[in-house]
């Protein structure tokens, strides 16, 4: 479903100096798989997620991103969304003045239109969203507020999951959707993901905590350090990281 080949990316920092962030990422995600990406702060996990979703401003010097046999490199964010890519942001942005429900309806209908489906009318949309919002345990009043404005950290993350449930992506990237969540919220997020799991839908779960992976059991776990995936394993790798930290892996990299 998704292949990333030798992806190198850098960014111009505030002093206009080029800073290399990704140094040759390779990933191969098959339909139905759940991949976890772990790694220390600043290793480039969010950068990878943002590049996949189409954020501008990165200098991609090498590499390819193939989604469903198509190179999506030149596609705009909305075109990638239409293909079924979804990013649950690590830090969802607050957008004052834009109504949450209006936004969700516009987004869903825009995707449906791009996919050649008919747009949902107000009634059908309302029925749908009232069901989905229950699944993430948010009060309906959140639909009438501005997008993420004044939402608590946990409420923002639930709102991201709500959007995922509404938009039904084919590849969902969850960037630390578990950070800052209480135990109940963590289970809500996991339930949301698990309810969408199917043989032709894939997930990339970026997390610092093995705890989430108890609820969403991954097929593959990757460790990213300094812009490179330095180790790939099964779900037991997450347990090992929890016990030993990243130090032992970084030493291995230096040696090799």
């Amino acid at each position: 479903m998704l292949q990333i080949k030798n992806l190198h990316a850098s960014i111009q920092d505030e002093k206009q100096k080029s800073k290399v962030i990704l140094r040759g990422i390779n990933l191969n995600i098959k339909p139905g798989e759940v991949h976890a990406i772990m790694g220390p702060n600043g290793s480039g996990k969010s950068t990878l997620a943002n590049i996949l979703a189409g954020r501008a401003g990165y200098d991609i010097s090498q590499g390819e991103i193939i989604f469903d046999e198509k190179n999506i490199f030149t596609l705009a964010p909305e075109e990638r969304a239409a293909l079924g890519l979804f990013l649950a942001f690590q830090y969802p942005v607050e957008i004052p003045g834009v109504n949450n429900m209006y936004f969700l309806k516009a987004a869903l209908n825009s995707l449906r239109k791009q996919r050649g489906l008919n747009e949902l009318d107000a009634m059908d949309f309302l029925t749908l969203i009232k069901n989905k919002i229950k699944e993430v345990c948010l009060n309906e009043s959140f639909l009438h507020r501005a997008v993420n404005e004044g939402f608590s950290g946990g409420e923002k993350k639930r709102n991201e999951v709500l959007q995922m449930l509404m938009l039904e992506p084919r590849l969902a990237i969850l960037d630390e959707t578990d950070s800052g969540l209480d135990i109940d919220a963590l289970q809500t997020v996991a339930k949301g993901v698990n309810s969408l799991r199917s043989e032709n839908r894939s997930f990339i779960i970026v997390t610092h905590y093995q705890r989430l992976l108890d609820y969403i059991v991954p097929d593959v776990v990757h460790v990213m350090v300094k812009g490179k995936i330095i180790k790939t394993g099964g779900k037991e790798l997450a347990l090992e990281l929890e016990a030993k930290g990243y130090g032992w892996l970084e030493e291995q990299v230096v040696v090799s």
Binding site: G54, A76, P77, E78, F86, A107, S110, Q163
Partner: peptide
Amino acid sequence: ALFYLRARGLDE
């Protein structure tokens, strides 16, 4: 904010 909206499928 612009990227957020576009990433959800709204065009520019």
